[in-house]
Simulated scan of single mutants.
Amino acid sequence: MGINSSQTLRRKNLTAQDIIHECNEQSKVKQSYILVTGATSGIGIETGRTLALAGAKVYLMGRSETKLQEVITNINKELQQSTTGGSVQGVLCDLNSLASIKTFAQKFIQDNMPLNILILNAGIFNYKFAQTIDGLEQVMGVNHIGHAYLTKLLMPVLIANNPSRIVVVSSELQWGPPLNYQALEQMSSASTNRSKSWGMLRSYQQSKLANVLFARALAARYKDKQITAYSLHPGVIDTNLTSQLPLQGVLKKFIPKKTPEQGAATSVFCAIKPGLETENGRFFQDSTVTDLGDKWTEDDLDTFWKWTEKIIDERTANLS
């Protein structure tokens, strides 16, 4: 990428709008059809807003029709003053439910809606153990499995509109132990001691690592279809995602936070920056490629892919 350490320091404070200016007309953003999950709060709003104002046709995904309409109304007010030709459209889907994901994807395909950039932005951080509607440990179920199922169902559309990109919002907190498949299976069971090995930070770390592995696995499996994938750390954002963390007041004094405008920058960068094909599957931070996701082997990725497919197949087998 040719970015040195002094440039990296400067890039920490770039906003999503700065990235739009950096890419100029070479990004083809005005020819892009982009779906953003988790688009009714935090950096999801800012990601969708910035891309629409730059001229993209953006689908904003959320589970609350009320919140979606509020976000769309606010963005449309800005679009009325814009001449770029961008637009926003709300789409309802609950990533906590595999049935909801299937219903959404079927309608999206039936309506022949184009798509060439998928931004998997939605994420949760739980303070107590919980399971999804389908009985999956909820943090992994929403942050990875739900997104993986959505991607699987929309992949024909991405291939039909290629070259396409998949952007997976992970976290610097992905750094840690490898996935514990046995523990994940236990937490997604009906066992009375299913929460025994669950931990607040551990569950989040495991889900964010899954995001990194998912981008790597997608890159390897779909590069021949002109599909590229990237994972990223958006920064510590000034939102309510981790507002209830222990010692949060102390942490605020020592960990610099980004605004949502700055937090959305790397997502926008990975979505539209020209020439990223050579960095397919890699992990980005501060709109800069890093080596933080490079250590995983093909065997690791194969094991992860088969596990993900197994979970999806098992949990969707009886969906109508």
Rank of each mutant, 00 (worst) to 15 (best):
K12E: 14
C270I: 13
A148M: 11
T278E: 09
S287L: 05
D238R: 01
T8K: 04
E279K: 08
T50Y: 02
S64K: 03
Q31W: 03
G263K: 00
A220C: 06
A190N: 12
R63V: 10
N116E: 06
Q80G: 13
G123C: 09
S164Y: 10
L95Q: 09
S231P: 06
I3D: 03
N162S: 15
K306D: 15
G135N: 09
S195T: 05
L92H: 11
G293E: 04
Q69Y: 05
M200D: 04
T151H: 12
R315Y: 15
N24R: 10
G123M: 09
M1Q: 02
S100E: 06
D94I: 14
T308W: 01
S207W: 15
Y33E: 00
D294S: 09
P274Q: 08
I227W: 08
E78N: 04
W175N: 12
T303L: 11
K128E: 15
L79C: 02
R165V: 12
Q80A: 12
N193H: 09
S191G: 08
K77Q: 10
S87V: 07
G86K: 03
S87T: 11
L232T: 07
N161H: 15
P163S: 03
A54L: 06
Q110A: 11
Q262H: 07
V58S: 01
T15A: 06
K310R: 12
